[in-house]
């Protein structure tokens, strides 16, 4: 219990001192800013956030800032390179699917994907050849 009393005393004294010191700092900073005569102007939240992001980006370089260097491939971020690769592969697959029958990815008759050639043929088959109104 003696230790507890001492600890409580430390807490009150310690936090009191920290608050007092920083309150003095607050007062001095206010005084300097007053003397500096720089008026505050309203800015949009987005502008302020962009400015804050720039400050944070510089501080990320400090030890303890928890942001490890991102992996790069030939100077580009690795996750960006991966995204480009996936997009390119997907685009190639789409082009292949849309190509003429000789280039299409699936065997003729497959229900998975119809090339433009097959799709056009099926559409024609579905058209009603009878004149309208009969």
């Amino acid at each position: 219990m003696e230790n507890l009393g001492w600890g409580l005393q430390m807490t009150v004294l310690g936090m009191g001192l920290v608050f007092a010191l920083l309150a003095v700092l607050w007062a001095i900073l206010n005084l300097i800013l007053k003397l500096d005569q720089e008026e505050a102007e309203p800015v949009t939240a987005l502008e302020a956030t962009q400015a804050a992001e720039q400050i944070a980006a510089v501080a990320d370089g400090a030890v303890g800032a928890q942001i490890p260097e991102p992996a790069t491939v030939n100077g580009m971020r690795a996750d960006l390179v991966a995204a480009i690769l996936v997009a390119t592969m997907q685009h190639r697959r789409v082009l292949r699917r849309q190509a003429a029958p000789m280039m299409r990815s699936y065997w003729p008759g497959s229900q998975l994907f119809a090339s433009r050639w097959v799709a056009a043929g099926r559409t024609r088959q579905n058209n009603n050849w009878q004149p309208k109104g009969r």
């Binding site: 500096d36 102007e41 309203p42 939240a45």
Partner: peptide, 22 residues
């Protein structure tokens, strides 16, 4: 938000004042 332009003088004074005060 209100953006107060912080002068170079204030930015230089800040570390000096904090060091002397603390």
């Amino acid at each position: 938000y209100s953006s107060r332009k912080i002068s170079r003088r204030t930015r230089i004074l800040f570390p000096i004042i904090v060091t002397v005060l603390v």
